Amino acid sequence: MTNPFENRAPSLNGPATDLVPVTPSDSVDFADTAIALFIETGGTLSFVSVAGQSRTVTVGDGMIFPVGVSRVNATGTTATGIHAFTVA
């Protein structure tokens, strides 16, 4: 099978190069900043944006959350099945 991404530079214009499961943490940032999140089961999402701002929002089931995120906090997050879109 050929790989159409083989000679392509990662880009914020997409597509993401990986979808990584997220373990919420109040102190550990992602190894690679997320360009968006996928939420399997909705609820409250507490996160730190790439702008360094702490935010809390309500998200729905199956939602793609198109915000740059450096960390999902454990405290205040009830949403589950969170995955980070990355371009690393």
Rank of each mutant, 00 (worst) to 15 (best):
S70A: 04
A16Q: 10
V50D: 15
G76L: 02
T33I: 02
A84R: 01
M1L: 13
E6S: 12
A74V: 05
S54P: 08
T2A: 14
S11N: 15
Q53L: 12
F30P: 03
V48T: 13
S70E: 11
L12Q: 13
V22S: 05
F47N: 01
V69L: 00
V59P: 11
A84V: 01
L12A: 15
A79Q: 09
T58F: 11
S25M: 10
D18Q: 04
T2N: 15
T23S: 14
R8M: 15
D18M: 03
A36H: 06
T56C: 03
S11D: 15
T86Q: 06
I39A: 04
G76T: 01
Q53W: 07
T33F: 07
V59Y: 06
S70Q: 05
T86W: 00
A51K: 12
S54M: 07
D26Y: 00
R8I: 13
G62P: 07
A9C: 12
T78F: 03
T44I: 00
A36I: 01
S49N: 12
S49R: 04
P10L: 09
V20H: 01
S11R: 15
V22Q: 02
T23I: 06
Q53K: 12
M1E: 15
R71F: 06
F47A: 03
A74T: 02
D26I: 02
G81N: 05
T77A: 01
S54N: 14
A9V: 11
R8N: 14
P15G: 14
A84N: 02
T86M: 01
G42C: 10
S27R: 03
D32G: 08
V69K: 03
E6Y: 10
G81L: 06
